[in-house]
Simulated scan of single mutants.
Amino acid sequence: MSDEEDDYMSDAFLTKIQDVKPGVSMVRRVKETIKKEAEHKEKNIKNRQKSFKEQEKESREAALQSSISNENKGFALLQKMGYKAGQGLGKQGAGRVEPIPLNIKVDRGGIGMEEMKKRKAEEELEHYRQKVRAKQQNESKSMEDFRSRVRTEREERKIEGDLRRSQRSCEQLDSQKGISEPREDWYWPKTEAEDEAEPEAEDEVVNKEDEEDEAVELTPFDKLHILTSYLRGRHFYCLWCGTTYNDEDDLSSNCPGDTAADHE
């Protein structure tokens, strides 16, 4: 090995190497780079020439912050007429003190654009409110119709139930008095044979069309009223009391009335 070549295993070579911890130099360099970039950016901001709009804005704000001097011709005329700085406008000094604020228009809309947008927004809001009110009214009407329909169906079922009860009572009371046939077919409940009877032939139906047209179709309510009147007059029996009275005087004296509402 020549003298010019270093011995990598010797102490002299190892002492020349600096003891550098891993990662320390990298972090320091990153921080220095970030600091230099921030200083460079701040320097550019200071040296940057402001645009015309920025200069105009700064000069306008500075002018608005400062009060009018005596050199202003308008202010001088006001002072000659007796106006004093800080005093309200008008003869009595009751007018405005601060100047009218300056509103800079930044968009390209016309003069009445803001009013039109405001009016349009109010119209849309009112239209929305009308739709909400109409929806609420429709929901309320639908609910009321549903309740009315439920009440009607419940009342119809009650009437049909009372009619069946009165038919059974009529058959029983008529049989006790030796009556073998009802005054009307529907005065007594239908038997199973009648329920299962075959429908009439087509020619018989055609022959009876005239009779059916002349006959008045009775509703369950009408039948119930007729049948209960028959039971009260013929048998002195009240369906809702469930009692057979001795005579008409006993019925009139002790029965509340001839309807279901009278017995509630």
Results as ranks from 00 to 15, higher is better:
residue 261 A to W: 01
residue 67 S to I: 08
residue 197 A to H: 08
residue 124 E to T: 06
residue 43 K to Y: 07
residue 135 K to V: 02
residue 59 S to V: 09
residue 239 L to G: 01
residue 121 A to Y: 01
residue 90 G to N: 04
residue 239 L to I: 14
residue 57 K to C: 11
residue 253 S to D: 12
residue 8 Y to W: 13
residue 107 D to H: 06
residue 18 Q to A: 11
residue 75 F to Q: 03
residue 107 D to F: 08
residue 97 V to L: 10
residue 219 T to E: 03
residue 216 V to C: 04
residue 251 L to I: 02
residue 224 L to M: 04
residue 16 K to E: 14
residue 215 A to G: 01
residue 35 K to P: 03
residue 180 S to K: 14
residue 61 E to T: 01
residue 160 E to R: 15
residue 248 E to H: 12
residue 251 L to R: 06
residue 79 Q to I: 00
residue 235 H to V: 00
residue 113 M to D: 07
residue 257 G to I: 04
residue 52 F to W: 11
residue 9 M to F: 15
residue 66 S to M: 07
residue 184 E to P: 00
residue 260 A to S: 06
residue 57 K to I: 13
residue 253 S to K: 07
residue 180 S to T: 10
residue 192 E to C: 05
residue 222 D to L: 05
residue 251 L to N: 01
residue 181 E to Y: 10
residue 139 E to D: 13
residue 31 K to M: 05
residue 155 E to A: 15
residue 140 S to T: 10
residue 223 K to I: 00
residue 101 P to Q: 07
residue 232 R to Q: 13
residue 78 L to D: 04
residue 199 P to Y: 08
residue 18 Q to K: 09
residue 72 N to G: 08
residue 258 D to Y: 15
residue 263 H to T: 06
residue 217 E to Q: 10
residue 94 A to P: 00
residue 141 K to T: 07
residue 221 F to I: 00
residue 24 V to N: 04
residue 250 D to G: 09
residue 242 G to E: 02
residue 110 G to K: 03
residue 187 Y to G: 00
residue 156 E to R: 13
residue 205 V to N: 14
residue 189 P to N: 03
residue 132 V to T: 05
residue 189 P to K: 02
residue 178 G to S: 04
residue 219 T to D: 03
residue 160 E to L: 14
residue 12 A to V: 12
residue 67 S to E: 12
residue 79 Q to M: 03
residue 30 V to R: 04
residue 123 E to W: 03
residue 193 A to Y: 03
residue 74 G to Q: 08
residue 223 K to R: 11
residue 170 C to N: 05
residue 107 D to W: 03
residue 76 A to G: 10
residue 17 I to Y: 05
residue 105 K to M: 01
residue 116 M to H: 09
residue 256 P to Q: 00
residue 200 E to D: 09
residue 260 A to W: 06
residue 133 R to M: 14
residue 206 V to L: 08
residue 252 S to F: 06
residue 244 T to L: 02
residue 263 H to A: 13
residue 132 V to Q: 15
residue 185 D to T: 05
residue 111 I to C: 02
residue 193 A to R: 01
residue 12 A to N: 12
residue 49 Q to F: 08
residue 44 N to C: 06
residue 42 E to M: 14
residue 77 L to S: 05
residue 52 F to V: 12
residue 91 K to D: 11
residue 78 L to M: 11
residue 198 E to I: 02
residue 159 I to D: 02
residue 108 R to P: 00
residue 43 K to Q: 14
residue 53 K to D: 09
residue 219 T to W: 03
residue 177 K to F: 02
residue 44 N to F: 08
residue 246 N to P: 00
residue 1 M to D: 03
residue 201 A to D: 11
residue 246 N to A: 13
residue 220 P to K: 01
residue 46 K to G: 11
